[in-house]
Design a protein around this nucleic acid. Structure first.
Lengths: 335, 335
DNA sequence: ATGAAAGCGCTAACAT
DNA sequence: ATGTTAGCGCTTTCAT
């Protein structure tokens, strides 16, 4: 069938012998037309290859669009990629379109993205960041649309929040490791020059150690993005500085796997000589000779829930302010 | 500063003592106003917290928006994620917004996404797929906007194409392995029930073998998405069926790494007992005890080029129809 | 350099 | 169940 971007409601109306409004009603499925009229209109819609114009619709209805803004730290990460995919799919299914951005953990980047988005008068916004610039907060307030903050749970959300506490994930892992009776722990992190959720996990981890009466024996936070090689190299730096460690907690699983590769290359045995714990529940862990002790994060569920909460709010349904999506510490064989 | 979504051109015009048109001209930076007028208008824009309305602008100008549609197979893949990130960043910098979709290698999904996009009257479209449904092609034609096909190079593009030949990547790797003098090769792939670019690489690989007078000794293409575990498991299936192989070519690096993990678990030595080659140039390879023989793909460059070509076409600049972005076979120590 | 008028394609509100 | 009227906030076009 040949689409006709030029055919408008008017053309269909004329062809079907009704008014524009009737066509509009039929197309939007609201009531106010007979079955016979509906059939006639739809057949003309088909015949003329009518292509709806959402720009005009959004404009005509005074800015009520089906556009949603979504901003995450980055796309090229298995965790965020999967969350994003889930959000996008859910929103599409619910009849919304998303405009996506990434901020790489820089609140200023989020602000720039938001300014561009705001001009499109979105019907809702999903953000994956805890820190926002004052300008961002002011813009969000002025837009007066539903906002879902996701990933790191905000118990005092701007509007609605969904996710989990990274601090708690770190704390729980810290407690778990303490039970193993080891005493000298190290930490390997990433993106030292940004404020990341990894930092919260580390804080939680340290809090648990503190409760047990010990403190982190060594820590190495690289400036790089997290990744296999960052874990490899970070471990080398850490161990060079502090060779006598019983265990290492990593920013995420890929870094932990990188770390284990370095340890293996030096003949250091896991978990005999040193215990290893990661975070995230990433796929790469599935092929390690030993199951990695980690915290599994339900990325797709978080995305789906964020999308559904936002749509609920946009439709005016009552929705919960704070939705906690639990993560799960999965003991492996590396600790 | 407090934004005011309600302030319009009219309000600024009144406050600045000029007409709406003059404000519009100042805001869009075209000519037709004095420096003094510009200053007065801008100060009112600031004072009133004016927020432009792109919906109205796109509508008023008869559909000339700054919206671009981008559809890739999936977000949660390091390769596509990085390409997408690069596209999005480039488009943002050039003053465009993108509406993203994923099709998971299903032409029908791309069609559904495109139908949703079309109603937004995008100014251009970037697609990462070689196969399209007839409906998709018809819609693309009717939209009459610039279209960039990327990833797998299309030498007879709908409009503009950028990328490289996956067949050639496979062929080149096949030739390279043939030079090693090995004779019994296996292949491990993914997404058997979809038409993927991996299939093209395999075809190229087989073509090279054929030229050398041999054929693939065994092949195992799983239905799963590519990944570490798929490579691990696929290798187990392959070797169980055909234990005497000299080399294995994989759908991508992560699968190759998964395969090496399985081989290691069975005490099969790489490259002594069996040679391994991957594809993609993925980060996980950086921590392997031996450098993986692979083909490195410049994902960010492809994304940036796709964005720039599209913007060039949208602006009416003359741009090249077909832009080849070379990949590079990097010999490692696994073959 | 500036302004006035017309209209983009819909939907909301109010008829009938 | 259907039609009529009046915009939505810009840009385009044509004056001045």
């Amino acid at each position: 069938m040949s689409r006709n971007a030029k055919a408008g409601l008017e053309d269909i109306a004329r062809a079907a012998g009704v008014s524009k409004m009737t066509v509009s009603r039929v197309l939007r499925g609201s009531s106010g037309f007979s079955e016979e009229t509906r059939a006639r209109v739809m057949s003309e819609v088909e015949r003329l290859g009518y292509l709806p114009n959402r720009i005009a619709a959004a404009f005509g209805s005074g800015g009520t669009s089906t556009l949603v803004g979504v901003c995450v730290p980055r796309f090229a990460s298995s965790l965020f990629g999967s969350t994003l995919e889930s959000i996008n799919t859910s929103l599409m299914r619910l009849g919304y379109q998303s405009m996506i951005g990434s901020h790489d953990q820089l609140p200023e980047e989020e602000e720039i993205w938001l300014k561009g988005l705001a001009s499109w008068r979105p019907a809702g916004i999903i953000l994956a960041a805890r820190r926002h610039t004052p300008e961002t907060l002011s813009l969000l307030r002025d837009l007066t649309v539903p906002i879902v903050e996701m990933w790191d749970l905000n118990t005092q959300p701007i509007d609605v929040s969904v996710g989990f506490s990274h601090f708690d994930d770190g704390y729980t892992m810290g407690r778990f490791l303490m039970l193993r009776g080891r005493r000298r722990y190290g930490y390997v992190g990433a993106m030292a020059n940004r404020v990341t959720t990894g930092r919260n996990r580390r804080d939680g981890f340290e809090a648990a150690l503190r409760e047990g009466g010990i403190s982190l024996a060594a820590s190495e936070t690289l400036e790089d993005h997290p990744g296999f090689y960052a874990g490899y190299y970070g471990t080398e730096l850490l161990i060079s500085r502090e060779p006598k460690l019983d265990g290492i907690y990593y920013h995420d699983d890929e870094m932990a796997i990188g770390g284990m590769a370095w340890l293996a290359s030096r003949g250091i045995r896991v978990p005999d000589d040193i215990g290893i714990a990661g975070w995230g529940g990433m796929e790469a862990a599935s092929i390690q000779p030993r199951r990695l002790t980690t915290t599994v994060v339900p990325t797709a569920l978080i995305g789906k829930t964020a999308a559904e909460l936002l749509v609920g709010r946009m439709r005016g349904d009552p929705v919960q302010d704070v939705t906690m999506i639990p993560t799960r510490l999965v003991p492996g064989e590396t600790v």
